[in-house]
């Protein structure tokens, strides 16, 4: 990173004495601009100190801005609608007393766990997450991550954030943290919506695991939460990739489209058997391993591989984004 930010979080700035008068001690709150600010305040004010707690203001501001955009709310609404549609479809399909699919968790024509939904509404959570994880969830993340830097650049607001000065590293971190927060919120929206619809349309009760053992409803609920967290963590890689793409262009739309395009390409490559050599390195390859959390005992191998792969993507593309953004000329 060429823009050295070595003294970025230095506790106190060195006071710069004015030409004639010594700098006023940096105690009280900064004066408000206005008539109250005397002639001396502007010329003799030394650098104000950076406070660690104040640097979090940017992250809070990012969060509030992201979740106030109607686009974000629309994405969340679409995600919340998926379990509703799946739940209603299953209800209609089974209203004649028949059952859906062939039986096994991955059997039948639908997403994982769909066959169990009629017996236990909690399974709608797993079904909905299995249905949204391949495309809806990562697409939503791609939109938010792709827009993160490029959207600010195309609106021109990026230059004002940087002269504020937000600091390039800090801005990037705030953007990534916000995207990860969105991953979690998006996943929880799907899970909570599914739980509500499941409880409304189907009975709740003891849960039968894939291994055939039975666990209590409370334990099942805990597993559902764990699965939601793992699904959210599965999106870390896409988020880093999207953020990197976002630093490459000054067009928000182009960054979003590229990220979603990459997502689709990776999913297609993952389906081509001849390319199995690269499959273990595709960020989506172990996504559906979250189902292993429903085994008893839990089968960790693929889960760990998934989380490791996400960490790798975050490291590689996070660093690439940092290197790229740190040296980028902001000409918009």
């Amino acid at each position: 990173m060429s823009r050295a930010e070595a003294d970025a979080v230095a506790g106190t700035g060195t006071p710069v004495p004015g030409k004639s008068a010594p700098a006023a001690p940096e105690t009280g709150a900064p004066e408000a601009p206005g008539p109250a600010a005397g002639p001396a305040s502007a010329s003799d004010s030394g650098p104000r100190p950076v406070r660690l707690a104040w640097t979090l203001g940017l992250f809070r501001s990012e969060l509030s801005i992201t979740f106030r955009r109607w686009r974000t709310l629309a994405l969340l609404a679409v995600l919340a609608a998926v379990p509703v549609l799946v739940g209603i479809a299953v209800k209609i399909e089974t209203s004649d007393g028949g059952s859906i699919g062939g039986g096994g968790p991955d059997g039948g024509g639908g997403p994982a766990f769909i066959a169990q939904v009629t017996n236990n509404g909690l399974f709608l959570v797993f079904t909905a997450l299995a249905a949204t994880l391949p495309f809806f969830l990562p697409m939503a993340i791609g939109v938010v991550a792709g827009d993160a830097i490029a959207g600010e650049a195309s609106a021109g607001t990026l230059r004002y954030l940087l002269v504020a000065p937000a600091g390039r590293t800090r801005l990037l971190l705030a953007k990534y943290a916000t995207t990860l927060t969105f991953c979690l919120v998006a996943t929880l929206v799907v899970a909570v919506s599914a739980l509500a619809v499941g409880a409304l349309l189907f009975p709740l009760g003891e849960v039968t695991t894939i291994s055939g053992t039975r666990i209590g409803f409370g334990d099942g609920l805990l597993r559902a939460l764990l699965i939601a967290l793992v699904v959210a963590a599965s999106l870390i890689g896409v988020a880093a990739l999207g953020l990197f793409v976002s630093t490459l262009t000054s067009s928000g739309i182009a960054a979003m489209a590229t990220t979603v395009g990459l997502l689709i390409t990776v999913q297609i490559i993952d389906q081509i058997p001849q390319l199995h050599a690269v499959h273990p390195y595709l960020f989506s390859h172990y996504w559906l391993s979250f189902a292993d959390l429903m085994r008893d005992p839990i089968y960790w191998d693929d889960l760990v591989k998934n989380l490791g792969l996400q960490a790798l993507y975050a490291g590689v593309f996070g660093s690439a984004a940092w290197a790229r953004f740190g040296a980028k000329d902001i000409a918009t």
């Binding site: 709150a29 950076v50 104040w54 940017l58 004002y160 954030l161």
Partner: peptide
């Protein structure tokens, strides 16, 4: 408020 919160030296209280 958005631009001000991007400045780590800006006091959120004021």
């Amino acid at each position: 408020l958005r631009y001000d919160s991007a400045d780590p030296t800006a006091d959120p209280r004021t």
